[in-house]
Amino acid sequence: MKSIVHSTAAKLLVLLLLSLASGAQAQTQTTTATPTAYQRFNTWLMVFSDARLSNKWGIHTEGQLRQVKGPNSPQQKFLRVGANYYVANILVLTGGYANTMSYPDGNDSDVGGLPEHRSYQQVLLRFDSSRVMSQHRYRLEQRWVQHLGDKKFTYLNRFRYQLRLTLPLNHERKIAPGTPYVLASNELFVVFGRNDAGKFFEQNRACLGVGYQVNRATSIEAGYMNQMSQQETMSSLVAGHILHLGLNFNPDFRKGKLTMANN
């Protein structure tokens, strides 16, 4: 039975990797064929933390700097906070707030920043019964967005689904301290509501990368993300080629757990 599960999980990872590669190729072909499409090269620096406070509760914090030409030319600054409720080992519910500041064309001096406020609700499912760990993330967002040339905020609804798979690059069954691993993910964004401008698909993010588990609480990741997004004009597509660098810090403050993580 275990061999069947392991084989199925491995096939799932291979299929996702192939779909990401073919999707990136198709997106590049689309941008070449569409006159209004253009490509953008970015670097995203990210820090994530899920601090476990008790058996049921925890805190999520997240910060990102998305830059176009360098640290002095940001595309977007991002901060997210939330409260985690651990229903079970495989199920986590989260609700919280996010704030972003976007800069057109990565220039924060001429035009100024465009703020956005979000509330969000999230369901996270994790399965690690095989060497390939899968994570399903369902997120609903309520967004108040300020567009260029408009001082008023527009209300938007958005739904996101992400599938993320990780696989240890050694003979370990699970990712443990000192373990390198490979990761693959794909996230679909759709919008709905009276202000959706008649569109449904907003963007898709396909990612391939590698990571290293430093200790029980800390890991680092780096990889390539292909982002296909549809602009407000409905006729403009942006293919983003993104180098992402991430730090994950997930301390466990339950009795006895923090000492184990530090060791």
Results as ranks from 00 to 15, higher is better:
31 T>D: 10
34 T>R: 13
38 Y>T: 12
161 Y>F: 15
128 D>T: 11
261 A>P: 01
64 Q>G: 04
202 E>T: 04
153 F>E: 03
104 P>K: 09
148 L>K: 11
184 A>T: 01
8 T>A: 15
12 L>A: 14
33 A>D: 14
113 G>R: 01
88 A>K: 13
230 Q>L: 14
240 G>Q: 06
23 G>T: 08
87 V>W: 14
185 S>Y: 03
110 D>N: 11
43 T>C: 10
111 V>H: 09
56 K>I: 01
163 L>W: 08
10 A>G: 03
7 S>P: 00
66 R>D: 06
235 S>Y: 10
110 D>C: 09
213 Q>G: 02
126 R>A: 09
193 G>I: 04
82 G>P: 03
240 G>F: 03
254 R>E: 02
121 Q>R: 02
171 H>C: 09
142 Q>P: 05
36 T>A: 15
54 S>D: 13
256 G>H: 08
251 P>C: 11
109 S>N: 13
52 R>W: 05
56 K>N: 11
219 S>Q: 11
201 F>S: 07
83 A>D: 05
181 Y>V: 00
156 L>N: 04
236 S>T: 15
63 G>E: 06
118 R>Q: 15
25 Q>F: 13
78 F>I: 07
70 G>I: 09
133 M>R: 00
40 R>A: 07
164 R>A: 04
148 L>F: 10
37 A>C: 15
26 A>W: 13
234 M>H: 14
120 Y>L: 06
202 E>C: 07
145 V>P: 01
96 G>M: 05
85 Y>T: 06
3 S>G: 05
245 L>T: 02
209 G>H: 05
221 E>L: 10
16 L>C: 09
45 L>E: 03
194 R>I: 02
9 A>S: 15
217 A>Y: 03
187 E>M: 12
227 Q>I: 07
143 R>Y: 12
8 T>I: 10
186 N>Q: 13
152 K>Q: 15
134 S>Y: 00
183 L>V: 08
126 R>W: 02
4 I>W: 11
35 P>Y: 11
61 T>H: 02
109 S>K: 12
128 D>W: 06
214 V>T: 09
243 L>G: 02
56 K>F: 05
167 L>F: 09
12 L>S: 09
192 F>V: 05
141 E>N: 12
221 E>F: 01
107 N>Y: 11
180 P>E: 07
83 A>P: 04
256 G>F: 06
220 I>C: 07
254 R>A: 02
144 W>K: 03
217 A>V: 07
94 T>F: 00
